[in-house]
Design a protein around this nucleic acid. Structure first.
Lengths: 328, 328
DNA sequence: GGTGATTATGTAACCCGTTACATATATATT
DNA sequence: AATATATATGTAACGGGTTACATAATCACC
């Protein structure tokens, strides 16, 4: 491997001068600079980032923790984080945590040993105590972590309200909810939004709520049960698109026409919702944008560790497709 | 940060001894070892991987190049690579190349500067000349790169033949093909497999082939055109599932019943194919397995750079779902 | 008791880029 | 001409593990 010493010898200067040329700092005579640049080019010299990292204590790497990249919500997020990292010459590390606190801690420790510069975390299981001890910047994404860490999220409760109100406006009388795991804040917020709209109604029943694990299969099963036992249900708000598709499939399985006999609305706005039949009405999150912002905030925190950056909350947008009726 | 010197002072030994204890090599007296371990524990010492990397010239990091993680084929692959990396205590770096040779080269150079230990590449645009010059192990995944690099792929041609034969067996007479980009080998192999089966038939027409860009939208458009201009077509083999779904949607748009009037079969076996209506018949690739094997091979190459590991080719499996008729 | 192998531990160089500090020349200011 | 300031470059320490080599103690065997 070509090192700075090799360059310095060829250019007849000291390593310090080569370093100055590389980093464009300090005083370097124009002619010396040219000599050095020529030597760099001739040897095709590339600085060793590891040595640089060792001295600086910074690695120019950031990590993203997601539960599982196979969940279709996360690739878009990951893409955004990677794009912005790359743009700022940071290397992007991806970690699948499976919502497992042990894995989260292991990853974090391993990354700290590698002098990771910052971490973006999508998690509801992360040990906050652990996080407080470390000094690298942390940004929470999609799910809030702790007031201490800036978070980039969407207004889940408001979005849920819009979704359920929309079902009402299109004529649904008995609106059920397939809720997500309640330890995930975004999920419990969505349920709150649902309750905000329907709880006071005389038609409402606690039994209109079913819990799924944010997966297609789960929702398929609980929706089948719900629709079989409650034939009056004519609208379902699912806490995410994956579960909404499970509901769609359950309705298909039971021979229930969507949207004529049953309206279904999801949450997230993942691409797959455009390929089902009927296509899925959903509350779309600005997924790429929140990923992008989380990364920008993280990078800012890395550059200026003292400045406190406020959390950001984005709005979700109703996307009307075929799984709900037209507003009359 | 706690360093080895801190530990060595507390334990009253030299840094060399601490290093020996950490790495379990060389001679260390049992009682000394205990003293050192106690000191490590008391100080909660964690070695600095950057310093280790600098000396060893290895980083314990591997990278995966994919065109775009948002393409639903890649998350499963990425998950496999990450799982195996993690299992072997390697850190996983993800790069989205957008099939852009310039981006590929930039990533590669950036990673080499970070002493990356190996790279798994899904690409048909990668400059092989560039790759030959570098000394870190490379493994090709999904698409062959060059005989020089071990590749983990599936038998695309054979899979395509099985798909098209299956369409014939279920009664299709006029089988069309939505082909993928021909510069992607896997894609051109699939077309060859299609031609292997139908080209000799008197009914076959060159005009039964349309080209898409592996995307849903592309396929939707070309399938609409194909089905409008060739009403005799009663079977379509799409080069990947995403395009097959585009075809499905085009048929729905044109009021063509699938599978009664038109059978559709895809390739890949991505999850989304289970959520469409009708669900998608496809040639399933063992995605996780090829990702896993590619990683294992890469890690082996890293441990034993001299040993040449042969390429591996996996079989694809026909998954019968609702977009094709039953075999009579 | 002597020779050699085994065990045990420390010193210091090394990996490679960065930068504080020293030194020196050139230019500007009064 | 003297002093201050800007420009230019080099030396060497530093970051934190790793390991070759040196040294020394213990043990085995004849």
């Amino acid at each position: 491997m070509v090192t700075m010493r090799d360059v310095s010898k060829l250019a007849n200067v000291s390593v310090a001068t080569v370093s100055r040329v590389m980093n464009n700092n300090g005083y370097v005579n124009e002619r010396t600079k040219e000599k050095v640049l020529a030597a760099i080019k001739e040897l095709n010299y590339r600085p060793n980032d590891v040595a640089r990292s060792l001295f600086k204590g910074k690695s120019k790497m950031i990590a993203l923790f997601v539960p599982d990249i196979r969940n279709p919500f996360f690739p878009e997020l990951a893409r955004a984080v990677e794009d912005i990292s790359n743009m700022h010459h940071y290397t992007f590390i991806l970690c699948n945590t499976d919502n497992d606190p042990a894995k989260e801690v292991n990853y974090l420790n391993a990354l700290l040993q590698k002098s990771i510069d910052g971490v973006i975390i999508v998690s509801s299981t992360m040990s906050v105590k652990q996080l407080r001890e470390i000094k690298v910047p942390i940004v929470a994404l999609d799910r809030k972590l702790d007031a201490e860490f800036p978070a980039v999220t969407v207004n889940n409760r408001e979005g849920a309200k819009i979704a359920v109100r929309y079902l009402k406006e299109t004529g649904c009388k008995h609106i059920a909810h397939i809720a997500g795991p309640q330890d995930i804040i975004s999920s419990s917020e969505r349920m709150k939004g649902y309750l905000d709209v329907v709880q006071k109604e005389y038609r409402f029943s606690d039994d209109y709520i079913r819990f799924g694990n944010y997966t297609y299969e789960d929702a398929f099963e609980v929706a089948k049960e719900l629709l079989t036992s409650h034939s009056t249900v004519d609208g379902i708000f699912a806490a995410n698109d994956l579960m909404a598709i499970g509901v769609l499939k359950a309705a298909e399985y039971l021979g229930i026409n969507v949207p004529n006999d049953l309206s279904i609305i999801g949450f997230d706005g993942i691409t797959i919702g455009r390929t089902t039949s009927p296509t899925l009405t959903t509350m779309e999150q600005p997924i790429y944008i929140i990923g992008k912002r989380a990364t920008e905030i993280l990078l800012q925190q890395i550059e200026e560790p003292d400045r406190r950056i406020p959390s950001e909350e984005y709005k979700v947008t109703l996307i009307q497709r075929e799984s709900t009726k037209e507003r009359s």
